[in-house]
Amino acid sequence: MRRGAWRTSGAATLTDVSKPVVRAQDLLVGYGGAPVCAPVSFTLAPGRAVALVGANGSGKSTVLRAVIGLLEPVSGSLQVLGGPVDERDVGFRRQVASVLDDDAYFPALTVSEHLYLTARGHGVRGADDVVEELLAEFGLTDHARSLPVSLSSGQRRRLLLAAGFVRPRSLLVLDEPEQRLDKAMRDRLAARLVEEKRSGGSVLLATHDTELLRAVADRAVVVADDVTRVMSAADAAQVISRENP
């Protein structure tokens, strides 16, 4: 897979010379026709990561929901994998994995069964080995037979993240994946996302975690209600640190 070099176009647009996985141009998102933030423009290339940063309620999650097809954009253009966003399309669902803040589980399915469901639902052969590896990686091996109701909040979060990695994908969309994770698990997640990029996958995440941002993101989009800016991950981390001293 060809890796494109990043270059900025103007003050608020990222473009990549290779075929982008996500291309948002003056994308305006909101509810009931009312936008929640300024228009967003960015491009995410294969093997790259873009982070959305900004204050709580700035519209990061809303942008992510538009990218995965859970929300109709108010205006602007949005293309994912070279086409319009349509989560009803089976091909779209095969290639786009997302981990939002869905804290919902089948009460009768164990931790490992949730992962088997996802893996087998995506046609993964040898799902046993894949699930076992992910259980170990996310520190859930001892809870493999537990029902979700007996898990702590952090363990449930790890189960959701593991479900994002247990299936094939081209684009991984994560909404504040650092939430409810301890430091060690956040470091492990950062390493996993870096590996994701090396494998040719693209990552689009919303985050408040400066370390995760520096470790994973190639670029950052600062989402706000007046203007959105595209900057390097290091600069965005400084912005976050300044706003949350």
Binding site: M1, P46, V90, G91, R94, Q95, A119, R120, G121, H122, G123, V124, R125, G126, V130, R167, P168, R169, S170, L172, E196, S199, G200, G201, S202
Partner: peptide, 20 residues
């Protein structure tokens, strides 16, 4: 599913078979 068969995800450390 048939028309999607040629669209393969980029990150595929798995052996992917038919969708159930």
């Amino acid at each position: 599913d048939d028309t999607d068969a040629d669209v393969e995800p980029a990150v595929q450390p798995f052996d992917v078979g038919a969708i159930p």
